[in-house]
């Protein structure tokens, strides 16, 4: 029972990463009908940006130039990483995808893969192949609840991730931007005729998705403090699968699917040889998709949505 609870805690943390990244895939797909295959690498970029901000702030503190408590550095790191990474996302949309708005979807997919490679190799070129160690921003405290060991970072990550997801859900459901995002899932013709600037909304979607990926990147660095330029690939692909599983553009579905991915990862590795982890968890997902091809909360859409 204790191992089970321990696994639940770990799975919640893993699921937070997947869910946060998957939301970016899902929102962009909902609005623009394309998968931003560079999104996993945006997560990597966010993690590195977080790394530089945290390292910088910590050394400034050590030098006595600024005096900030650990929690303030943490909050600043998260917010700044989200902000700066959202600019990267907006840039990717502007340079990579907007010129291809009317091109076949395959062109956009290839562009996405290429942008991903540019981000990975650019990082490799600028920073070298050595891995980076994400600094410990706040001291990790381990405490026991029964026989389940919890750390303050784990609790922080899961709670803040959930808060971010709730905020996103509120944003999508109840604001004018959120309504515009939902309406753009249906067409690009009527929405502008109602006075909505579609390009700005597309950029906003990319920016929001990238900010969430950056939050996941910082949280990942806090939990598993080794960063390398290719870290985005596996998490990116798994989150992509979670986005499909959640259903196009559905925040709740994507969050559930992200946590499901986390649970599969952890529990499959517990009860089966861990080398079979991906094989078994993806097989389970294939079975689910066989019966629910539109995902948990997805709806059937015709391929001909646009003029």
């Amino acid at each position: 029972m204790d191992t089970f609870l321990q696994n639940v805690v770990n799975a919640l943390q893993w699921g937070s990463f997947y869910a946060l990244i998957a939301l970016g895939y899902s929102m962009v797909y909902g609005v623009l009908m394309l998968f931003n295959f560079a999104h996993g690498d945006i997560f990597m970029v966010g993690s590195y940006i977080g790394f530089f901000i945290a390292t910088g702030l910590i050394s400034l503190s050590a030098l006595g130039i600024i005096s900030l408590p650990g929690w303030a550095i943490l909050v600043l790191t998260i917010l700044l990483a989200m902000l700066l990474t959202s600019f990267v996302g907006v840039l990717v949309e502007r340079i990579g995808y907007r010129p291809l708005r009317d091109a076949p979807r395959a062109s956009a997919a290839i562009t996405g893969l290429m942008i991903g490679i540019i981000l990975e190799t650019g990082n490799l070129y600028l920073l070298g192949a050595s891995r980076r160690k994400f600094p410990e921003i706040i001291e990790t405290n381990i405490f026991k609840l029964g026989n389940v060991s919890l750390t303050n970072t784990k609790i922080f990550i899961v709670i803040i991730s959930l808060l971010i997801m709730i905020a996103l859900h509120q944003f999508i459901q109840h604001t004018k931007w959120g309504m515009a995002i939902r309406a753009m899932a249906y067409d690009f013709v009527v929405v502008p005729l109602m006075g909505v600037p579609v390009n700005a909304i597309a950029a906003l979607t990319f920016g929001l998705g990238s900010a969430l990926a950056a939050a996941a990147g910082v949280f990942y660095g806090m939990a598993y403090p080794v960063l390398d330029p290719y870290m985005g690939i596996e998490y990116g692909w798994k989150s992509f699968v979670a986005a499909i599983l959640g259903g196009r553009g559905s925040v709740i579905g994507t969050v559930i699917a992200g946590f499901l991915m986390g649970f599969l990862d952890i529990f499959v590795a517990t009860y089966f040889p861990s080398t079979m982890r991906n094989l078994i968890s993806f097989s389970i997902i294939l079975v689910i998709l066989t019966f629910r091809p539109h995902g948990f909360f997805g709806r059937a859409y015709s391929a001909q949505l646009r003029l």
């Binding site: 004018k176 931007w177 939902r182 006075g195």
Partner: peptide
Amino acid sequence: WRHMTVLEHVKLARYSKITYGLSGAF
């Protein structure tokens, strides 16, 4: 926009008239 409500259709059309900012959204 098939899966949005009637009221949401009308509200979104007021997009250009809404002035609250992002802080108001969150």
